[in-house]
Protein backbone atom coordinates (compact mmCIF):
# COMPACT_ATOMS: atom_id res chain seq x y z
CA UNK A 1 0.00 0.00 0.00
CA UNK A 2 1.43 3.31 -1.05
CA UNK A 3 0.96 6.24 1.22
CA UNK A 4 -0.82 9.38 0.10
CA UNK A 5 2.28 11.45 -0.35
CA UNK A 6 4.56 8.89 -1.99
CA UNK A 7 5.97 10.13 -5.29
CA UNK A 8 4.46 8.18 -8.12
CA UNK A 9 6.39 10.01 -10.80
CA UNK A 10 9.67 11.85 -10.41
CA UNK A 11 10.83 14.07 -13.25
CA UNK A 12 14.46 15.11 -13.23
CA UNK A 13 16.02 17.74 -15.48
CA UNK A 14 13.76 16.85 -18.38
CA UNK A 15 14.51 18.63 -21.67
CA UNK A 16 12.77 17.96 -24.97
CA UNK A 17 13.64 19.11 -28.46
CA UNK A 18 11.77 18.83 -31.74
CA UNK A 19 14.40 19.55 -34.34
CA UNK A 20 16.04 22.78 -33.28
CA UNK A 21 13.13 23.91 -31.15
CA UNK A 22 13.43 23.21 -27.45
CA UNK A 23 9.95 22.46 -26.14
CA UNK A 24 10.88 21.79 -22.53
CA UNK A 25 13.82 23.14 -20.52
CA UNK A 26 15.33 21.16 -17.63
CA UNK A 27 12.06 20.53 -15.91
CA UNK A 28 12.01 18.81 -12.51
CA UNK A 29 8.97 17.95 -10.41
CA UNK A 30 7.37 15.14 -8.46
CA UNK A 31 3.85 13.84 -8.77
CA UNK A 32 2.15 12.07 -5.87
CA UNK A 33 -0.02 9.02 -5.89
CA UNK A 34 -3.75 9.67 -5.94
CA UNK A 35 -3.57 13.33 -6.72
CA UNK A 36 -4.66 15.44 -9.63
CA UNK A 37 -1.90 17.62 -10.93
CA UNK A 38 -3.13 20.42 -13.16
CA UNK A 39 -0.70 21.74 -15.72
CA UNK A 40 -1.58 25.18 -17.05
CA UNK A 41 0.11 27.59 -19.37
CA UNK A 42 -0.34 29.36 -22.69
CA UNK A 43 0.11 27.77 -26.11
CA UNK A 44 3.63 26.49 -26.81
CA UNK A 45 4.46 26.43 -23.11
CA UNK A 46 5.58 22.80 -23.37
CA UNK A 47 2.74 21.39 -21.31
CA UNK A 48 1.54 18.92 -23.93
CA UNK A 49 5.11 17.84 -24.77
CA UNK A 50 5.59 17.19 -21.06
CA UNK A 51 2.44 15.11 -20.89
CA UNK A 52 3.28 13.11 -23.98
CA UNK A 53 6.70 12.37 -22.56
CA UNK A 54 5.14 10.56 -19.61
CA UNK A 55 3.88 7.81 -21.94
CA UNK A 56 6.58 8.33 -24.54
CA UNK A 57 4.30 9.35 -27.37
CA UNK A 58 6.76 12.10 -28.26
CA UNK A 59 9.13 9.58 -29.73
CA UNK A 60 6.78 9.06 -32.69
CA UNK A 61 8.05 12.37 -34.05
CA UNK A 62 10.99 11.93 -36.40
CA UNK A 63 13.17 14.75 -35.05
CA UNK A 64 12.50 14.29 -31.34
CA UNK A 65 15.30 14.33 -28.75
CA UNK A 66 15.18 14.08 -24.98
CA UNK A 67 17.52 14.39 -22.01
CA UNK A 68 16.92 13.97 -18.30
CA UNK A 69 14.90 11.30 -16.54
CA UNK A 70 11.35 10.33 -15.77
CA UNK A 71 10.93 7.76 -13.00
CA UNK A 72 7.71 5.82 -12.58
CA UNK A 73 7.67 4.09 -9.21
CA UNK A 74 11.41 4.62 -9.13
CA UNK A 75 12.03 3.06 -12.53
CA UNK A 76 13.34 4.96 -15.54
CA UNK A 77 10.56 4.88 -18.15
CA UNK A 78 13.10 4.77 -20.97
CA UNK A 79 14.11 1.35 -19.71
CA UNK A 80 10.56 -0.01 -19.84
CA UNK A 81 9.10 -1.28 -23.07
CA UNK A 82 6.79 1.43 -24.46
CA UNK A 83 3.90 -1.07 -24.55
CA UNK A 84 4.12 -1.82 -20.83
CA UNK A 85 4.62 1.85 -19.97
CA UNK A 86 1.61 2.96 -22.01
CA UNK A 87 -0.55 0.24 -20.55
CA UNK A 88 0.21 1.63 -17.09
CA UNK A 89 0.07 5.27 -18.10
CA UNK A 90 -3.17 5.81 -19.99
CA UNK A 91 -4.01 8.87 -22.02
CA UNK A 92 -7.15 10.81 -22.89
CA UNK A 93 -6.79 13.05 -25.93
CA UNK A 94 -8.14 16.52 -26.58
CA UNK A 95 -10.75 15.39 -29.05
CA UNK A 96 -12.68 12.25 -28.20
CA UNK A 97 -11.33 9.71 -30.64
CA UNK A 98 -13.59 6.68 -30.51
CA UNK A 99 -12.78 3.91 -32.95
CA UNK A 100 -15.46 3.18 -35.57
CA UNK A 101 -16.75 0.07 -33.82
CA UNK A 102 -19.32 -0.72 -31.14
CA UNK A 103 -19.31 0.78 -27.66
CA UNK A 104 -18.51 -2.61 -26.20
CA UNK A 105 -15.65 -3.19 -28.63
CA UNK A 106 -14.19 0.23 -27.91
CA UNK A 107 -13.99 -0.38 -24.18
CA UNK A 108 -12.80 -3.97 -24.45
CA UNK A 109 -10.31 -3.06 -27.19
CA UNK A 110 -7.24 -2.72 -24.96
CA UNK A 111 -7.83 -5.83 -22.85
CA UNK A 112 -8.60 -7.92 -25.94
CA UNK A 113 -5.43 -6.77 -27.63
CA UNK A 114 -3.50 -7.63 -24.51
CA UNK A 115 -4.75 -11.19 -24.70
CA UNK A 116 -7.91 -11.38 -22.59
CA UNK A 117 -10.35 -13.54 -24.53
CA UNK A 118 -12.77 -14.76 -21.88
CA UNK A 119 -16.14 -13.20 -22.61
CA UNK A 120 -17.21 -13.11 -18.98
CA UNK A 121 -14.04 -11.35 -17.89
CA UNK A 122 -14.40 -8.83 -20.71
CA UNK A 123 -18.07 -8.20 -19.83
CA UNK A 124 -16.98 -7.44 -16.28
CA UNK A 125 -14.23 -5.08 -17.37
CA UNK A 126 -16.55 -3.24 -19.75
CA UNK A 127 -19.24 -2.72 -17.10
CA UNK A 128 -16.77 -1.67 -14.43
CA UNK A 129 -14.96 0.76 -16.72
CA UNK A 130 -18.17 2.34 -17.99
CA UNK A 131 -19.41 2.68 -14.40
CA UNK A 132 -16.24 4.49 -13.42
CA UNK A 133 -16.74 7.14 -16.09
CA UNK A 134 -20.48 7.45 -15.25
CA UNK A 135 -21.46 6.24 -18.69
CA UNK A 136 -22.87 2.81 -17.84
CA UNK A 137 -26.43 3.89 -17.17
CA UNK A 138 -26.59 5.81 -20.42
CA UNK A 139 -25.30 3.04 -22.68
CA UNK A 140 -25.94 -0.28 -20.98
CA UNK A 141 -28.93 -0.96 -23.25
CA UNK A 142 -26.98 -0.35 -26.44
CA UNK A 143 -23.48 -1.67 -26.02
CA UNK A 144 -23.59 -3.15 -29.52
CA UNK A 145 -24.33 0.15 -31.17
CA UNK A 146 -21.62 2.10 -32.95
CA UNK A 147 -19.69 4.37 -30.63
CA UNK A 148 -19.69 7.09 -33.28
CA UNK A 149 -23.39 7.66 -32.58
CA UNK A 150 -22.71 8.92 -29.06
CA UNK A 151 -22.59 12.64 -28.26
CA UNK A 152 -19.24 14.37 -27.90
CA UNK A 153 -19.34 14.29 -24.12
CA UNK A 154 -20.35 10.64 -24.06
CA UNK A 155 -17.58 9.84 -26.52
CA UNK A 156 -15.00 11.46 -24.28
CA UNK A 157 -16.23 9.48 -21.28
CA UNK A 158 -16.11 6.37 -23.45
CA UNK A 159 -12.47 7.17 -24.14
CA UNK A 160 -11.91 7.38 -20.39
CA UNK A 161 -13.56 3.98 -19.95
CA UNK A 162 -11.40 2.57 -22.71
CA UNK A 163 -8.31 3.72 -20.88
CA UNK A 164 -9.59 2.49 -17.51
CA UNK A 165 -10.25 -0.95 -18.97
CA UNK A 166 -6.51 -1.52 -18.93
CA UNK A 167 -6.40 -0.72 -15.19
CA UNK A 168 -3.60 1.80 -15.50
CA UNK A 169 -1.94 3.51 -12.53
CA UNK A 170 -1.59 6.94 -14.07
CA UNK A 171 -3.99 8.72 -16.42
CA UNK A 172 -2.95 11.64 -18.57
CA UNK A 173 -5.63 14.07 -19.70
CA UNK A 174 -4.67 16.31 -22.61
CA UNK A 175 -7.19 19.19 -22.56
CA UNK A 176 -9.97 16.64 -22.38
CA UNK A 177 -12.83 19.15 -22.37
CA UNK A 178 -11.67 21.53 -25.07
CA UNK A 179 -14.42 20.43 -27.44
CA UNK A 180 -17.19 19.89 -24.90
CA UNK A 181 -20.15 21.89 -23.63
CA UNK A 182 -20.34 22.88 -19.92
CA UNK A 183 -22.64 20.00 -18.92
CA UNK A 184 -20.41 17.38 -20.53
CA UNK A 185 -17.39 19.10 -19.06
CA UNK A 186 -18.89 18.86 -15.58
CA UNK A 187 -19.44 15.14 -16.04
CA UNK A 188 -15.88 14.54 -17.17
CA UNK A 189 -14.59 16.55 -14.21
CA UNK A 190 -16.82 14.60 -11.87
CA UNK A 191 -15.35 11.34 -13.09
CA UNK A 192 -11.82 12.71 -12.74
CA UNK A 193 -12.45 13.60 -9.09
CA UNK A 194 -13.83 10.13 -8.48
CA UNK A 195 -10.93 8.46 -10.27
CA UNK A 196 -8.21 10.14 -8.27
CA UNK A 197 -8.99 7.88 -5.33
CA UNK A 198 -7.35 5.06 -7.23
CA UNK A 199 -5.29 6.72 -9.92
CA UNK A 200 -2.69 9.40 -10.30
CA UNK A 201 -3.99 12.01 -12.70
CA UNK A 202 -2.17 14.65 -14.68
CA UNK A 203 -4.42 17.17 -16.37
CA UNK A 204 -3.18 19.55 -19.02
CA UNK A 205 -5.74 22.26 -19.57
CA UNK A 206 -6.20 25.64 -21.18
CA UNK A 207 -9.05 26.33 -18.85
CA UNK A 208 -7.62 27.81 -15.64
CA UNK A 209 -10.98 27.52 -13.91
CA UNK A 210 -11.00 23.82 -14.58
CA UNK A 211 -7.50 23.52 -13.13
CA UNK A 212 -8.69 25.35 -10.04
CA UNK A 213 -11.79 23.15 -9.70
CA UNK A 214 -10.16 19.73 -9.91
CA UNK A 215 -6.42 20.10 -9.29
CA UNK A 216 -4.86 19.26 -5.93
CA UNK A 217 -1.68 20.87 -7.05
CA UNK A 218 -0.99 23.00 -10.09
CA UNK A 219 2.03 23.68 -12.24
CA UNK A 220 2.37 26.76 -14.43
CA UNK A 221 4.47 26.35 -17.56
CA UNK A 222 5.74 29.19 -19.72
CA UNK A 223 7.96 28.85 -22.80
CA UNK A 224 9.08 25.40 -21.81
CA UNK A 225 9.94 26.30 -18.25
CA UNK A 226 8.25 25.45 -14.98
CA UNK A 227 7.48 28.84 -13.45
CA UNK A 228 5.55 27.84 -10.38
CA UNK A 229 4.43 24.60 -8.80
CA UNK A 230 2.36 24.50 -5.62
CA UNK A 231 -0.96 23.61 -4.03
CA UNK A 232 -3.73 24.67 -6.37
CA UNK A 233 -5.26 26.93 -3.78
CA UNK A 234 -1.97 28.73 -3.28
CA UNK A 235 -1.37 29.16 -6.99
CA UNK A 236 -4.80 30.60 -7.56
CA UNK A 237 -5.03 32.82 -4.51
CA UNK A 238 -1.48 33.91 -3.78
CA UNK A 239 0.86 33.07 -6.65
CA UNK A 240 4.52 33.69 -5.90
CA UNK A 241 5.44 34.69 -9.43
CA UNK A 242 4.04 37.72 -11.17
CA UNK A 243 3.76 35.86 -14.51
CA UNK A 244 1.57 33.20 -12.91
CA UNK A 245 -0.73 35.85 -11.57
CA UNK A 246 -0.94 37.58 -14.92
CA UNK A 247 -1.76 34.34 -16.71
CA UNK A 248 -4.44 33.38 -14.23
CA UNK A 249 -6.00 36.80 -14.44
CA UNK A 250 -6.12 36.36 -18.19
CA UNK A 251 -3.59 39.03 -19.15
CA UNK A 252 -2.04 36.71 -21.74
CA UNK A 253 -2.50 33.25 -23.03
Amino acid sequence: MVTQTASKIIVKQLSIWFGKVQALKELSLQIHSSEILSVIGPANSGKTSFLRQLNRLNELEANFRVSGEVLLDGEDIQKLSPEILRKNVGMIFALPQVLPMSIYDNVSYGPRMHGIKNRGVLDGIVEESLEASFLWDEVKQRLKESATKLSGGQQQRLCISRTLALRPEVILFDEPCSGLDPVSTAKVEESMLKLKENYTIILVTNNTKQAARVGDRSAFFLMGELIEFDKTQKIFTAPADKRTEEYILGKFG
Binding site: L85, M91, L99, G110, R162, T163, L166
Partner: peptide, 8 residues
Protein backbone atom coordinates in the same frame (compact mmCIF):
# COMPACT_ATOMS: atom_id res chain seq x y z
CA UNK B 1 -2.13 7.47 -31.30
CA UNK B 2 -5.07 5.99 -29.46
CA UNK B 3 -3.94 2.49 -30.20
CA UNK B 4 -0.36 3.13 -29.13
CA UNK B 5 -1.53 4.90 -25.99
CA UNK B 6 -3.42 1.73 -25.08
CA UNK B 7 -0.10 -0.07 -25.02
CA UNK B 8 -0.38 -1.80 -28.37
Amino acid sequence: EVSLSLGL
